[in-house]
Design a protein around this nucleic acid. Sequence first.
DNA 1: GCGGTAAGTTCTACGCCGTAGGTTTGCCGG
DNA 2: CCGGCAAACCTACGGCGTAGAACTTACCGC
Lengths: 212, 212
Amino acid sequence: MARRARGTSAGLDRHRIATAAVALVDRDGLERFGVRRLADELGVDPMSIYHHVKGKAALLDAASEAVLHEVEIGAAEASDDWAEIARRTAHGYRAVACRHPRVFPLVVVRARTSPVTVAAVERLVTAMRAAGLPDRVVADTPGVLFGFLNGHLLARTGEGPEVPAPVGEFDAAAHPTTAALAPLLSDVGSVAEFDRLLDTVLAGIRVSAASG
Amino acid sequence: MARRARGTSAGLDRHRIATAAVALVDRDGLERFGVRRLADELGVDPMSIYHHVKGKAALLDAASEAVLHEVEIGAAEASDDWAEIARRTAHGYRAVACRHPRVFPLVVVRARTSPVTVAAVERLVTAMRAAGLPDRVVADTPGVLFGFLNGHLLARTGEGPEVPAPVGEFDAAAHPTTAALAPLLSDVGSVAEFDRLLDTVLAGIRVSAASG
DNA sequence: GCGGTAAGTTCTACGCCGTAGGTTTGCCGG
DNA sequence: CCGGCAAACCTACGGCGTAGAACTTACCGC
């Protein structure tokens, strides 16, 4: 990769760097990611990157932030049904997780409290409160919903086997019930499964509101 | 650290190595973990470790496996109430996550399908089936339960601020509902909060069974 | 006893990594 | 035309994971 002369601009900025970082992680995985590889990808000296991003950690932050910005709520405000808002938010979140499976672990452990997330939470809790749900339940909802989303999507988008079943190969004789249930888990990772599980969680929130 | 002569035994084995790895990650964090540091800790040459564990990745696998083995179900079999079994399993899992907060991310992304997990799942689904819950719901339960557990505990045991609120500092004016709810989130990270959220999830499973 | 063998440990070396510090270059206001 | 500045580059350092070889010891059939 031929480098430019010393003073000429490479057109680097934080956004371009973050985008390239996401692409690189998507292609090669988190393990292989590094400042030098990213610099190669950008046709740039490694140290040039440091003029826009503080270090590798900040680089990963920028990447996960960029991915999070891709989330589209999809006209969530058009509805005032809180469950519908929750479902659309969840599906938007799932879509990015599937689009960037190798960056998603970064999103989970890093960019909490991102503006995007905060805004989504605000929309959801506002709708729930307007619907008259108890504050206790409304306040707990983000924790349970994003807890489920992060954990589930992490399991379903991981680097594991092609279809990472919740329970992989196992001794069928020692675990008869699991074995008997296995046929029902044929759609692991599908939208249908995601919807079923999500509805279970939302149902829990609903009955907590009714019985609390 | 004085090394022993070349042929003398260092008393290394997989278990001792895994234990030391867990201790090292607990103390210094994942970022600082490395084969050389672990070797120093064990008073041993780095390469000696490679005769018992294949490489760094396998080392991390061993560490997360060791942590997972610490989970105690706590007489879960004494009860035949599936919800009680789920609660005890969840609390055992949480206890480990709190005891080893810096190893837990490893447990989440790696040791899925560990024997310990598989056995716990088998106990749970067997009890649920015996209680007459629909197979569809029983089969989906591990996914929703461990999805929630992994995601939630990851958020609550992360390296973030002292009290990693689900929504950190934010513009109170721009997010009035979240701000209004903030006082209700004073117990973030506590067992009480964990119990509330867990009960919400279990309630969802229960009503799915009733209405499915 | 004794030579042979296998296992466990250490040594050496290679290529890669993140990044601190210094150098070069083009641009732009004066 | 010039002086400063921002942006990019170059060099270098210490640390990393680990392949391969060298060495020491324990053990076993004889």
